[in-house]
Write a protein that binds this DNA or RNA. Structure first.
Lengths: 253, 253
DNA sequence: CGAGGGATTGAGATTCATCAATCTATGTGG
DNA sequence: CCACATAGATTGATGAATCTCAATCCCTCG
């Protein structure tokens, strides 16, 4: 069962005009090369919220760069539970793995309406061969993902429920701030349900609810109407053992 | 405080004679090229057990390929706890990250006597540029590591204590079997203490002890005298939600 | 107006951590 | 060779953190 891919009807964004290019795979590519790198991009696709994009073990023709919206990559369990491995945000790549012809190692779903830029997986080796800048950029993005995964692993293994939720929210808050560059805003759109937070942190939605209340009572953050308000970013990071420096998508040489 | 690196005195293994090359970075490199790829290798180093190799946030001149022995990469917490991120075994790479000049994102320690092949991190870009086979091989190894990390994340987030320990032991059992190619042996050398298992699975050593006893009583596996005996591999994998196919270090095209 | 998805709260059960003690094997110094 | 120290494994008792089950509430949507 393949997801239906609906191309963006009009005004597909050209790579050279892309507002989030600094975050994405083509960061660092020279302006004059962007027209031919764009040839590797098949299409921009529009996705409604809660649309399945990949299912684990199935094959897919495409990998995607997120242009707009929130996605979750996750592993589903036999008992109906799931573990969210990562929230993918604009600039992030989903569906890349070294074995480009093999089945997907995780499932993916859109959490909001989203726009994805599709790349045929089969043509990636050629793209990387022809443009070392892009290959290097991919390595950067993978390396940051590995780091996020290591930090989440540490959180799940060693921290309490409230620390896990604090870490999760702090990470997303700072990742969104980097994307939107709104320096002084303490609020972000936050499409995750409490159950989603539970699937990230390994907690039940009931316990997430109690912990979120506690965080509100501690005046660290609050969530309402799909908006996350961070009241004390420093204390929230401390509680969640979260270091904002770990989420940058650029390597500082 | 740099770790003292002790070169292997005599009989350094040449890359062309390396018995684990099929597992490691130079898998796939043509025989006639191995003499110059070896030029990138500084030295083989001998490590005693429980020697610190990296400390998080510090810089390091080298990345390493494990030639012999078991290592742990981990994050240490302020409160003295630690989360082991991965057990590194022969063929595995430690210390690679896209930002080759930056500080290490994790600590590393040898769990047994070990022999490591050192590569100057600064020269890696040149090596990868000159030999796309090696760059591709690195992507393969990173991709498998990402998979292992995702699977462990799922285990930590969603499974019970006994399932976590079963997963951990099954993973190591099958990884060692691939390395040693002893097809019919149900025992492996297993240098982890019960406390180490706790640092991998996020459990206390006391609870690990009770769970290991339970696994013995269920006739799935037993540990004694630093040997792991797997009595029923299928059931152990089922219990731990572990798929042996996920640990291969080669991509099957 | 009813239906449904999320959020919220309460009560009780379970899992796992903590604290404390014992046991074994191994190694060390005298 | 013995006395002692140490690390890891083992067991028991207790308590805290978190899950499970159940109910209610609040929105929004049709």
């Amino acid at each position: 069962m393949k997801p239906k891919l609906i191309p963006v009807e009009q005004n597909q964004t050209a790579c050279k005009d892309c507002s989030i290019r600094r975050l994405a795979l083509f960061n660092g590519v020279a302006e004059e090369e962007l027209s031919w790198t764009q040839n590797y991009r098949s299409c921009q696709y529009q996705m409604p919220a809660r649309r399945e994009i990949y299912r684990e073990t199935e094959n897919s023709e495409f990998m995607f760069t997120i242009y707009h919206g929130w996605l979750a990559i996750y592993k589903a369990l036999e008992n109906g539970k799931r573990q969210i491995l990562k929230i993918a945000l604009p600039g992030d790549i989903i569906g890349y793995q070294a074995n480009l012809t093999g089945p997907m190692s995780y499932s993916a779903v859109s959490l909001t309406d989203a726009v994805l830029c599709a790349f045929p997986r089969a043509e990636m080796p050629e793209l990387f061969r022809n443009n070392p800048t892009i290959a290097k950029r991919l390595a950067e993005l993978n390396s940051r993902d590995m780091n996020l995964c290591h930090n989440r692993l540490t959180t799940l293994g060693q921290h309490s429920a409230i620390e896990k939720v604090a870490h999760c929210c702090a990470e997303l808050f700072f990742r969104i701030k980097i994307i939107h560059e709104e320096l002084e805003n303490d609020q972000i759109e936050f499409p995750l349900s409490q159950e989603d937070i539970g699937d990230i942190t390994g907690l039940t939605k009931i316990h997430v609810n109690r912990v979120v209340r506690k965080l509100r009572e501690m005046n660290l953050m609050s969530i309402s109407d799909r908006v996350l308000t961070v009241l004390d970013a420093d204390k929230l990071c401390d509680l969640g053992y979260f270091d904002p420096r770990t989420v940058h998508t650029h390597i500082l040489y």
